[in-house]
Design a protein around this nucleic acid. Structure first.
Length: 438
RNA sequence: GUGGGCGUAGCUCAGCUGGUUAGAGCACCAGGUUGUGGCCCUGGGGGUCGGGGGUUCGAGUCCCCUCGCUCACCCCA
C-alpha cells in the first residue's frame, strides 16, 4: 500500500503547527479589530476571468486554473484584492465610507516551493477604501507595525521602508525618462537593494534609458533619502516640494501613532508591480535574512477597474510563512501551552461511569477536560495527563465513589487532596487555562 | 522556468573500498508497579533503504531515469 502524501508546496498542519498558525492568526485578527477593521471573506474558487482581466502577469502565470463540471473556467484565488474589489464595487454606493475591511484568506499560487514560499498559504489583508489622503496610508502602516508588535517583535526585529510612486514619477520627469520606458525602469530600480547599483543601472539601460540618465537615476534613488534626491537632481526643473510635504505629513502621523521608529523613508522601495499609484511600503526583518514580510501601498484605481465608483484605496498583504520564520528565529513563538484544565482517570472499568459523569460536570461549567479512554494503569494515565499539560488529574476509584468525592492531584507539585466535584469545578474556574495565549 | 545539494524507522542519523535475516538514540506501545506520572530496567511494534530500470553471483552502497525535499536565481506574501 503506497502512502498518498500531501501535494508539493502544501502543508499538513499537525496540532503543534496548527497551534502556531492559530496563535498568529489570533494576533492578526485582534489587531485588525483594535484598529476598527471589519472581517470579510470570499470564495476560494473564483471565475478565472477575475484574474486574467486585471491581475499582474506573474500572478496569472501562477494560477491553479481548471474547468469545473459546468464547463466554467475557474481558478483557486491567488490573491484577495480582486475579490475585495468585486465586493466593494458591487455595493460601493451603499457602504459607509471609509471602508475598513480585513480578511485572512487561504491563497494558492502554483510556483516553485522554497523557504518561506508555498503553494498554499495564508495572509492578512488590510484595506482602507475611500480615503485619498495620507491619513489612510498612516493608519494602514501603523496597523501593519502593530500586527508584528502584537506577535512580540520590536524595532530590533523588523523595519517598514516606504516611498511614494508619485515622487519617483517626479524624479523621472526631472531626468526626462520617457513615459513608455518607466515600467521597465521601475523593474530595474527594484533590483537596486538586492543586486546593487551596477546591476540596477544595467537593467535600467536595458529598459531603453540612455546610459548617463540611467546612472543619474540609479545614483539619485540610491541616495535613498530626500536630501540626497534633491542634490542629485540639482538644476532640474521639477519641484519635489509637494511630494516632500506629503511624506513629511505621513512621517508626523506615524510618529503620533508611536510607530515612527519602525518606519524609514527609502526611495529605493519601488515594488515591481504596475498598479501602485502612491505610497508604497514593504516590511523586512531587520537582519535582512528573510524575504519580505509584507508589501503594500496605494492603488487608487482598484474599485473603478472592477466596475464600481471611483474610490481611492490603500492596503497590504502580510504572509504567514515568513512571519513564522522570523518569530522562530527570534524565539518568539509561543511555548506549548496547557491543553486542558483537568484530566479525569477512572481506576478501573467499574469507575468509568462516575469518571464520565465527573468529566461531563466539569465540561458543563466551561472547563477544558480530557478523560482517559483506554483501560490502563493509573500510572500510565497520569503520565499521559502530565504530557498534556493539564493542571490537575482527577482520579476516581472505589474509595472515592463510596465517599462521594474525587482525588485531585496537582500535576506540577504532585500534591493530592480529596474534594467534591462542585468545589473542584469552582476552584478550577477561578483560574481556567488561558484561551489561546502564550 | 534555470542551476546546486540531499532522499535509510514518526524524528535525528550510522551503515568502511557492493557481501548473509538493515542499526542506534529519541518518540510510540507493553511489562516491571492489577490505585499514582516525569527517573530507571526489560521487551515490542514500526523500513518495498523515495520510485523504476541497469551492472553484478550479490546493490542501502555503483550507473541511468524519474519523483520528492531543500537552497539560490526569477518573482513575490
Amino acid at each position: 500500500m503506497t502512502r498518498v502524501s500531501a501535494l508539493p508546496g502544501m502543508r499538513d498542519y499537525y496540532p503543534e503547527q496548527m497551534r502556531v498558525r492559530r496563535w498568529v492568526e489570533d494576533r492578526w485578527r485582534d489587531t485588525a479589530l483594535r484598529f476598527g477593521f471589519e472581517e470579510y471573506d470570499a470564495p476560494v474558487i473564483e471565475p478565472l476571468e477575475l484574474y486574467t482581466r486585471k491581475s499582474g502577469e506573474e500572478i496569472v502565470g501562477q494560477l491553479y486554473a481548471f474547468e469545473d463540471r459546468g464547463g466554467r473556467q475557474v481558478a483557486l484565488r491567488p490573491e484577495m484584492t480582486p475579490s475585495l474589489a468585486r465586493m466593494v464595487a458591487a455595493r460601493s454606493q451603499g457602504l459607509p465610507k471609509p471602508i475598513k475591511w480585513f480578511s485572512i484568506p487561504r491563497l494558492f499560487r502554483y510556483e516553485r516551493p522554497q523557504r518561506g514560499r508555498f503553494r498554499e498559504f495564508w495572509q492578512l489583508n488590510l484595506d482602507i477604501i475611500g480615503v485619498e489622503g495620507v491619513e489612510a496610508d498612516a493608519e494602514i502602516m501603523a496597523a501593519g507595525v502593530e500586527v508584528l508588535r502584537s506577535c512580540g517583535l520590536g524595532q530590533e526585529d523588523f523595519v517598514v521602508r516606504y516611498s511614494d510612486r508619485r515622487l519617483l514619477e517626479a524624479v523621472m520627469d526631472a531626468l526626462l525618462v520617457p513615459i513608455e520606458r518607466r515600467p521597465a525602469a521601475y523593474a530595474g530600480l527594484d533590483k537596486l537593494v538586492r543586486a546593487g547599483a551596477e546591476a540596477a543601472s544595467a537593467e535600467v539601460r536595458k529598459a531603453g534609458v540612455p546610459a548617463d540618465t540611467a546612472t543619474r537615476l540609479v545614483r539619485a534613488v540610491g541616495r535613498r533619502d530626500l536630501d540626497g534626491l534633491r542634490e542629485e537632481l540639482a538644476g532640474g526643473e521639477v519641484d519635489l516640494t509637494p511630494h516632500a510635504e506629503r511624506l513629511e505629513q505621513l512621517s508626523r502621523h506615524l510618529d503620533a501613532y508611536g510607530v515612527g521608529g519602525f518606519c524609514e523613508f527609502d526611495a529605493a522601495v519601488v515594488r515591481g508591480l504596475a498598479y501602485y499609484t502612491g505610497i508604497v511600503f514593504e516590511m523586512y526583518d531587520r537582519a535582512g535574512e528573510l524575504r519580505a514580510l509584507c508589501g503594500g501601498g496605494r492603488f487608487d484605481d482598484l474599485v473603478r477597474a472592477a466596475g464600481g465608483e471611483d474610490l481611492p484605496a490603500v492596503g497590504f498583504g502580510l504572509g504567514e510563512a515568513v512571519l513564522v520564520e522570523l518569530l522562530e528565529a527570534r524565539g518568539r513563538l509561543p511555548s506549548a501551552e496547557p491543553r486542558c484544565d483537568a484530566w479525569v482517570i477512572p481506576v478501573s472499568a467499574d469507575d468509568r461511569a462516575d469518571a464520565i459523569r465527573a468529566a461531563a460536570r466539569l465540561r458543563a461549567v466551561g472547563l477544558r477536560v480530557d478523560l482517559s479512554l483506554r483501560e490502563q494503569s493509573v500510572g500510565k494515565a497520569l503520565k499521559r495527563a502530565g504530557q498534556s499539560g493539564a493542571r490537575v488529574a482527577v482520579v476516581i476509584g472505589s474509595s472515592e465513589r463510596e465517599a462521594g468525592v474525587v482525588t485531585v492531584r496537582d500535576l506540577a507539585s504532585g500534591q493530592e487532596e480529596r474534594a467534591d466535584i462542585e468545589s473542584l469545578a469552582g476552584r478550577l474556574l477561578q483560574r481556567p487555562v488561558e484561551r489561546g495565549r502564550a
